[in-house]
Amino acid sequence: TNFTTRQLTELEKEFHFNKYLSRARRVEIAATLELNETQVKIWFQNRRMKQKK
């Protein structure tokens, strides 16, 4: 998935405060950013892996 700059900014901002999202928060973010819930979930999984390295 190619994310827009706005989407990436918002996802990174959320990640800064929360490494893990509740389902409710994931649904909320997905709706706000016009993404589906799975895209948000996978982005967070990938971002956590990236941070571990």
Rank of each mutant, 00 (worst) to 15 (best):
Lys52Gly: 15
Arg6Gln: 10
Ile42His: 12
Leu33Tyr: 06
Glu14Ser: 04
Thr9Ile: 10
Gln51Lys: 06
Arg47Pro: 10
Ala30Met: 09
Leu8Tyr: 06
Ala30Pro: 03
Lys19Ile: 02
Glu34Lys: 13
Ser22Cys: 06
Arg23Lys: 13
Met49Ser: 07
Leu11Asp: 04
Asn36Phe: 02
His16Arg: 12
Thr1Glu: 15
Gln7Asp: 02
Gln45Leu: 07
Thr1Gly: 12
Thr38Trp: 10
Asn46Gly: 08
Phe17Ile: 15
Ile29Asp: 00
Gln51Gly: 10
Glu37Ala: 05
Lys19Asp: 11
Lys13Gln: 08
Lys50Phe: 09
Trp43Asp: 02
Lys52Leu: 13
His16Glu: 14
Leu35Gln: 00
Val40Leu: 03
Ser22Ile: 02
Glu28Arg: 13
Asn46Lys: 07
Ser22Pro: 06
Arg47Asp: 03
Gln45Phe: 07
Glu14Gly: 03
Ser22Asp: 11
Leu8Cys: 06
Tyr20Asn: 11
Glu12Ala: 03
Ser22Met: 00
Val27Arg: 11
Asn18Tyr: 05
Thr5His: 08
Leu8Ala: 06
Thr5Asp: 15
Lys53Arg: 05
Leu8Asp: 07
Ala24Gln: 13
Gln45Tyr: 05
Thr1Ile: 11
Arg23Tyr: 12
Leu8Pro: 03
Arg26Pro: 04
Ile29Leu: 12
Glu12Ser: 04
Glu37Thr: 07
Tyr20Arg: 12
Phe17Val: 14
Leu8Ser: 05
Thr4His: 00
Thr4Ser: 08
Trp43Asn: 00
Leu21Glu: 07
Thr9Glu: 14
Phe15Met: 01
Ala30Glu: 01
Thr4Gly: 05
Thr38Asn: 12
Thr32Trp: 09
Lys52Val: 09
Val27Lys: 12
Thr4Trp: 02
Gln39Ser: 09
Ser22Phe: 02
Ile42Gln: 11
Asn2Leu: 06
Phe44Gly: 02
Arg47Ala: 07
Thr1Ser: 07
Leu35Ala: 06
Glu10Arg: 06
Gln45Ile: 06
Glu34Gly: 15
Asn18Gln: 05
Arg48Asp: 09
Phe44Met: 05
Arg23Cys: 08
Thr38Ala: 12
Asn36His: 12
Thr4Lys: 03
Arg25Val: 03
Trp43Glu: 04
Phe3Ile: 08
Trp43Val: 03
Phe15Cys: 02
Gln45Asn: 10
Asn2Thr: 13
Phe3Gln: 04
Thr5Glu: 15
Arg23Gln: 13
Val27Glu: 14
Glu14Phe: 07
Arg26Ala: 15
Arg6His: 15
Trp43Gln: 03
Asn46Trp: 10
Phe15Lys: 01
Glu14Met: 11
Asn36Ser: 15
Lys13Trp: 02
Ala30His: 01
Met49Asp: 12
Leu35Pro: 01
Arg25Gly: 01
Arg26Gln: 15
Glu12Asn: 01
Val27Ser: 06
Arg6Met: 09
Thr38Gly: 10
Glu34His: 10
Arg23Ala: 14
Arg48Cys: 10
Lys41Met: 11
Phe3Cys: 04
Leu33Pro: 02
Arg23Ile: 09
Trp43His: 01
Arg6Ser: 13
Arg23Asn: 09
Leu21Asp: 10
Leu11Ile: 02
Val40Cys: 01
His16Ala: 14
His16Pro: 02
Glu34Gln: 10
Ala30Gln: 02
Lys41Pro: 02
Tyr20Met: 06
Phe44Ser: 03
Phe3His: 02
Phe17His: 11
Gln39Asp: 12
Phe44Thr: 07
Ala31Thr: 14
Ala24Trp: 06
Arg47Gly: 00
His16Phe: 07
Ser22Asn: 10
Ala30Thr: 01
Ala24Thr: 11
Arg23Phe: 10
Gln51Asp: 13
Gln45Gly: 05
Phe44Glu: 02
Lys52Asp: 09
Leu21Ile: 11
Leu11Pro: 00
Lys52Glu: 08
Ala30Val: 01
Leu35Gly: 01
Lys13Ser: 04
Gln45Ala: 11
Glu10Tyr: 14
Lys50Ile: 14
Ile42Pro: 05
Lys41Ala: 15
Ile29Glu: 02
Ala30Asn: 06
Val40Pro: 03
Asn2Phe: 01
Thr32Glu: 13
Thr5Leu: 11
Gln7Phe: 01
Phe15Gln: 00
Thr5Val: 13
Ala31Arg: 14
Arg23His: 14
Leu33Val: 03
Lys50Ala: 13
Lys50Arg: 12
Leu21Cys: 13
Val40Trp: 00
Thr1Trp: 07
Trp43Phe: 06
Thr9Gly: 08
Asn18Gly: 09
Asn46Gln: 13
Gln51Glu: 15
Tyr20Gln: 11
Arg48Phe: 08
Lys52Ile: 14
